[in-house]
Design a protein around this nucleic acid. Sequence first.
DNA 1: ACAGGCGAAACTTTATACAATCTTCGCCCA
DNA 2: TGGGCGAAGATTGTATAAAGTTTCGCCTGT
Lengths: 235, 235
Amino acid sequence: MAAKSRPKSDAPDVSDRVIRIREGVTAAILEHRLLPGTKLGEDEIGEIYGASRTLVRTALQQLAHEGIVSIEKNRGAFVARPTPADAREVFEARRLIEPTIVDHAVDAVSPTWIDRLQQHLSDEREAEARGDARASVRLSGDFHRLIAEMSGHSIYLGFLKELIARSSLIILLYRRHDTPACGTDHHAGIVTAIRKRDGETARAQMLSHLNEIEAELFLKDPAEDELRLADVLGA
Amino acid sequence: MAAKSRPKSDAPDVSDRVIRIREGVTAAILEHRLLPGTKLGEDEIGEIYGASRTLVRTALQQLAHEGIVSIEKNRGAFVARPTPADAREVFEARRLIEPTIVDHAVDAVSPTWIDRLQQHLSDEREAEARGDARASVRLSGDFHRLIAEMSGHSIYLGFLKELIARSSLIILLYRRHDTPACGTDHHAGIVTAIRKRDGETARAQMLSHLNEIEAELFLKDPAEDELRLADVLGA
DNA sequence: ACAGGCGAAACTTTATACAATCTTCGCCCA
DNA sequence: TGGGCGAAGATTGTATAAAGTTTCGCCTGT
C-alpha cells in the first residue's frame, strides 16, 4: 500500500494512451529518426496511435514543456531546433548537475543497481557492435538517466531527463564529425568508480565525459539573425 | 525585431487566456491564498476566468508539470502537498543551482540591472513595513527569479521557477514559527555583493541564505504512512 | 514576365457534447 | 445501531464539431 496512489513519477495524470504517444515521439526524437524542424501534425500523429487530437495535443504540450518540441501559435508543433546558445546552457547545466547526481548514486550503490548498470553497459556494447546507431544513441542517454534514477532524487531526475533529451537534438545538430557512439568506455569507467564507492573519481569522470561530448560539438556563434536564415535554408 | 518571434520563455505556445489562468492560479498559490490540498475544479476556474474547460485543463497540466499542482486521474487537480522528502530535494537543488546563478548574475551586472534590484529591495521593504504578508511572500520568491533572469540562462531560469514555486508551498507547510518574511536583509547583502562584482561573496551569501530558510523548516520524517493520516486530519 | 492580391484548402484553436468514472447519500439488512 | 449495497449526482476523460488563422495556389493588372 506504499506505492499505490502515486502515479506521480513524471506525468501526474495522463491516460495510458497519452503516455504511449509521448514516449513514442520522444523515442523517435532521441533515436534521431525525427529531425529538428520536422512538423508534427496532430492528425498525422493521432492516426498513427489511434487517438484523437485531444490526446495528441496533451502529449505535444508536455514535450514542449520538456523543450524537445516547439509549438508555434496557429502553426503547429515541430521538433525543436536548439540554438548554439541553448546548447551551451544545456551542457553547462549538465556539468553542474550530473557530478552531484553521480555522487548520490555512489551513496545508493547496491548489488541490484550494479547489476542493472552492468546490464546496461553490455547492452550498449552490443548495440555498438551491431552497428545500430539508433539504439546506441538512445542507450547512451539512458545511461545518464539510469544514474539519475539510482540517485533517488526525483527532481534531479526530472531536470536531467529534459537535459538529456535536448542534448540528443544538440548532438545531432552540431556534432563535428560522425564520431561513433563515443561514450561507452567512459560509461564503463564511471560504473567502476561507482562500484568502488569512489565518489571523487566518479564525479571527475562524469565531468570529463561531459566535457568530451561538448568538445566534439561545433557551436558556431550566430553573428546576427543571419544564422537563422542559414538554418532555414539548410533544412 | 530581436524579441518578436520568441514566445518561448517558459510556456511555448498557449493563447493569452491560458497564460492568464496559469499566472492567476500561480500567484494565488505563491501568495498562500490557495492552500495545499485545495481542489481546483475545472468548471469553477473556467467560470472565474470566463474560459472553457479546454483552456483550464491546459493551464492545470502546465502547473502540474511545474510541480505545484497535482492531478489525480478521474479525481481532478489539487494544489500540491510536497512531502518532507520533496522539500529536502528542492532545497538541495536550490543550494546547487542558485550559487551558480548568482555567479552569472555578477558577470551580467549593469546599471539597469542594479536599478531593478534596488527597486525590488525597496518593494520588499515596503511590503514588509506595510505588513502585507502575501506580497512579502511573493516578492521574496521574485527576488530569486529576478537574479535568475539577470543571469541570462533560460534553462536555469526555468528550473528555478519550478523550485521557487515548490519552495513557497514547502515553507507554508513546514515553517516552524511564523517568522516574518525572513530574507530581506539577506537579499540586500546579496545585491551589495553583486554590485561590487564580488562573485565569491555573492555565492556564499546566497548559500547561507538558503541554509537559513531551510533551517527554519521542521521536516518531520514520516515514520510510515502514519504521517499521511495526520496530514489529512490536519487539513 | 512579374508583382500583388484574392480565395480556397488545411490546419490549429476553442467550445461543446457525450461517455466513463468516482463520490455521495439514502436505504436496507444484520 | 453499524455496515454494506446501490442509485443519483457531480466531475473528469475523450471525441467531435464549429471558429479562426495561416498558407499556398491562381489569377489579374501592369
